[in-house]
Nucleic acid binder design. Structure first.
Lengths: 407, 407
DNA sequence: GGCTTTATTCCATTCGTTGGATTAAAGCTG
DNA sequence: CAGCTTTAATCCAACGAATGGAATAAAGCC
C-alpha cells in the first residue's frame, strides 16, 4: 500500500539524515552537513540543536587553521546510544555491546547451548545481555534495543525461529516476545547474513553502496546490498544459495546437500568429508558442529603449511565458490563482493589471492573490475551486524519511515 | 550520498502517490484516496484540485447507492498524458503508444533492421514514433517521453547500447542523444527485462509487490521486483541468468553458451538444435534469428500436436527452467514468478501446468505456495514496459524523488 | 420533516524549511 | 594595527504544506 507523507516525518527523516552523515564522517561541521545533505544552514542549525539536546551528538574543539571563521566540528556522542547484538551460530554464541560511534564496547563468546529447552536458552541470553550492560556501566535508558542474528528460516514478522537445520533444538522459539519480556528492550530478529551485510555496509568506507556479501560459516548464505539498502526478501529469508550448482562434475558426498552445489563446495562439513577421503583428517561425528569446526581448522592449517592435498581441496573450493559468485554478480549486477563469516578468516589465505581472477572469468557483461574483499569486520560480523540492525532501525534515514502508517 | 528533503518535494511526492493510487484503482473517491494514502481529507482535496487543473484526472459521475453523501469517483484522464515505448528485439521492433490509463492506443511491429548503420536505424525509429503520435491524433505536449527497451549490455547513464551479442549492428549506438534530438522528447533507455518487469508490476492486480520476472525471448533474462521497486543493479544490467547451471548432466550443444546453463535449456537457438538432433526440424542458419524463431515455432506446434520427441524436449526444458527459477527464488526470497517475453506464449502450454510442482521441489525454505504466472500482458510486454518506464519516471512516487539534489 | 451517515470543503493553526540579514571569528592587507 | 575579506553559524520574518475542527452537501433512514 503506497502511502503519503507529512512534515513531522519529514523532520524526523532529515534529522536521521544528518545523524547518518555524522556517523559516517565524524568531525563534520554544520557547514559540511549543509553541503552533504543539501539542506539549508538554518535547518542544519535547528537539527543539530535538537541532536545536541538529545545527547546524540556534541560539539568538538575547533581546529582553526583555515581562512574564515573556524568551523565547529561535530561528533556523535559515543555514549549517546547503545545497542546489543547477539549472533546465534550452531557452534558459538556471540554477544556485543555497540556504542553510537560504531565501536564495540564489549564482546563475549561462549559455546552455543546445545541440548537445552527454549526457555532456558532465552533466559541465558537475557542474563548475558543484562550483565553486559551492567558491566559496561552504561545507562540502560540509552540502550536502544537488542538485535538477534540467527540462521534461517525465520518468521521475522512474528519474531520466531522456525526450524533451522543446524539448530535442531531451536525450533519455533519465540525469540522476540521472550527476550523482549525478559530484558525489557525492543528486540529485532533478522537473518545472520542480513545482519552481516548491515555491519559491512556501515563499516565500509568505500562509496560503493552495492555489493554481495557471501557469508561462510556452518552454512553458506548470501545477502545483497543495493543502493545503500540491505535486501531482505518477502519473508526476510533472502540468500539461500547453497543449492546453486557450481560444479556439474562434483562427486557425491555423504551429505544431505545438493551434489555440486555451493554448500557442498565450501561448507565445513563438506570440506571435512573431502579431507577425510584424502586421509588428511579423521572423519568427525557429523552431528557435532564443534568437532566439524575443529577438523576444518586442521584442514586449513595443513593447506597453509603446504600439504598438497589440503591445498588442492581449498583450491577447488575457491574455483567452485567463484562460479557461485559469478551467478550472483551476473544476476544482480554488482561489482563488489565481500566475504566474511566465522569460516572466512581460515579460508581467506587460500581464497583471496585467486578469487578475483576466477570470478572475472564468470562474468557475462564486461565490467571494469570486480572487487573481492574480505570482511572489514572479521569473525564477529554477524553479532556486530545484529547490533547495527538496531542502530539502523532507530537512527538511520529510511525512506519507508517517511511514509504515513509505517512503524 | 544521503540527502535531505523539503516541503516542495514532499508535495510532489504526495501528488504522485495520489495519482499512483488512482492509476491502480480507477474510480476511487477522495475519501478512498484518504484511506488508501493515509493523508488528511484536506490534503487530498488540494492535491486532487491540482491534478484536475493539470488535466491528469477528472471527476466521473457518482453512482449514488450508499448511505451518506455519494462519493464522486475520480478517474485518470486517459488523454492527460501519453508515452511511447519501443522494444528492440533481434527479430522484431515493436512500438506502442500508451495513454495515462495504461491502455495501448496504437501498436506497430516490424522486422528489426539488420544490416544498416546506426543513424539510419535511429532515424527510422524517430520517424515511426512521430508518425504514430500524428496518427493517434494526440497532443504532442502531452507525450511525456520515449522509452527504449533493449537487450544488454547497456550504459544506461550515457544512454548507449554497448555490444549486444544478439544485435551485432547496434554496437555503441548513442540511442538517447540521437533519439532525443530527432524527436524532441525525453528518452529513457533500459534493459528489456527491466522494462518487462515494470509493465508487469503495473498491470498486476495482485497485491504481491515482489516477484521474479523470467523473460524468454531470443535470449533469457530475469528481473526482480521487490517492495514495488524494480531492481536495476549498479549498471542497470541486472538479470544475466543464462549461465546458471540447471542441469549438470546436459549434453554439449553446438552453441556458445555454457553447457547445462539456463540459456542452453530454453533459448530458441538451443531448443532448435535439440529438435534438429531428433530430426523434428531442419537445422536453420544459426545466425538468422528469424529462421531460428520459425523453427522454434514449429517445434512448439509439434509438441502441442502430441509429437513425443517435441513433448520430451519441452518437458525437459521445463524441468531445467524450474531449477533456474528455484535458484532465483531461494536467493531472493520471493514467492511469485512471472514468465513472459516473445517466446513465452509458445511455451506456456507446455510449461504452465508442470512448473509449479517442479519449482516447489527446488525450494529450500518451506513456503506457503509459489505462484507461477504467465505475463498478464503478453508478447509485447517489453515494448509496453518501455512506455511504462516513462510514465513511472515522471508520474510515479519514487522515494528518491524526495531527496534534495536528485533529478 | 428531522436524524443519521458519509463526502467534501472552508478556515485558522501548526510546524518545518527557506531566504535574507546579522553576528562571530578567523586570515589577509596595506 | 585597523579595515577588508572569507567562512561559519544564527536570528528573524515569511512561505507553504499538512492538519484539526467546523461547516456544508447530499444521500438514506425513521
Amino acid at each position: 500500500m503506497r502511502r503519503g507523507s507529512n512534515q513531522l516525518r519529514l523532520a524526523d527523516f532529515n534529522q536521521a539524515v544528518v545523524l547518518d552523515v555524522l556517523r559516517r564522517t565524524p568531525g563534520a561541521s554544520r557547514a559540511d552537513l549543509r553541503r552533504e545533505s543539501g539542506l539549508s544552514p538554518q535547518t542544519i542549525s535547528n537539527i543539530t540543536r535538537r541532536l545536541i539536546d538529545d545527547g546524540l551528538i556534541r560539539e568538538s574543539t575547533p581546529s582553526g587553521s583555515a581562512r574564515g571563521r573556524p568551523s565547529i566540528p561535530l561528533v556523535v556522542d559515543r555514549d549517546g546510544a547503545f545497542s546489543v547484538g547477539v549472533h546465534i551460530d550452531p557452534a558459538r554464541l556471540t554477544t556485543v555491546l555497540l556504542d553510537l560511534d560504531g565501536q564495540v564496547r564489549l564482546r563475549r563468546q561462549e559455546r552455543t547451548p546445545q541440548a537445552t529447552n527454549p526457555p532456558e536458552v532465552t533466559a541465558l541470553i537475557a542474563a548475558s545481555v543484562d550483565s553486559m550492560i551492567r558491566e559496561a556501566g552504561v545507562d540502560r535508558d540509552r540502550v536502544l534495543g537488542l538485535g538477534i542474528a540467527a540462521p534461517g528460516p525465520l518468521d521475522v514478522h512474528a519474531g520466531v525461529i522456525l526450524d533451522p537445520p543446524q539448530l535442531p533444538n531451536w525450533r519455533n522459539v519465540r525469540l522476540r516476545s521472550d527476550l523482549s519480556q525478559a530484558t525489557g528492550l525492543p528486540v529485532l530478529l533478522d537473518k545472520d547474513v542480513t545482519a552481516a551485510a548491515t555491519a559491512e555496509l556501515r563499516s565500509s568506507k568505500d562509496a560503493s553502496n552495492a555489493f554481495v556479501f557471501l557469508y561462510l560459516g556452518s552454512g553458506v548464505g548470501a545477502s545483497v546490498v543495493i543502493d545503500n539498502q540491505v535486501l531482505r526478501g518477502t519473508t526476510n529469508n533472502i540468500g539461500e544459495v547453497g543449492d546453486i550448482i557450481v560444479d556439474p562434475d562434483a562427486e557425491q558426498l555423504e551429505w544431505a546437500g545438493r551434489r555440486g552445489g555451493l554448500a557442498a563446495a565450501c561448507v565445513p562439513e563438506a570440506l571435512v568429508i573431502q579431507a577425510a577421503r584424502l586421509g588428511l583428517v579423521p572423519l568427525p561425528d557429523l552431528t557435532d558442529y564443534v568437532a566439524i569446526d575443529d577438523a576444518c581448522t586442521s584442514l586449513c592449517e595443513q593447506a597453509a603449511a603446504g600439504n598438497s592435498g589440503a591445498v588442492w581441496i581449498l583450491d577447488r573450493a575457491a574455483r567452485r565458490v567463484a562460479v557461485g559468485l559469478g551467478v550472483l554478480i551476473n544476476l544482480l549486477d554488482v561489482s563488489r563482493v565481500v566475504l566474511g563469516g566465522p569460516l572466512w578468516n581460515r579460508l581467506s589465505r587460500a581464497f583471496l589471492p585467486v578469487l578475483p581472477e576466477l570470478v572475472a572469468r564468470e562474468l557475462v557483461v564486461a565490467r571494469p573490475a570486480i572487487v573481492v574483499d574480505g570482511s572489514a569486520i572479521g569473525e564477529h560480523v554477524a553479532a556486530q551486524g545484529a547490533a547495527e540492525l538496531v542502530m539502523d532501525h532507530f537512527l538511520a534515514p529510511r525512506a519507508a519511515a517517511l511514509l504515513v502508517g509505517e512503524s
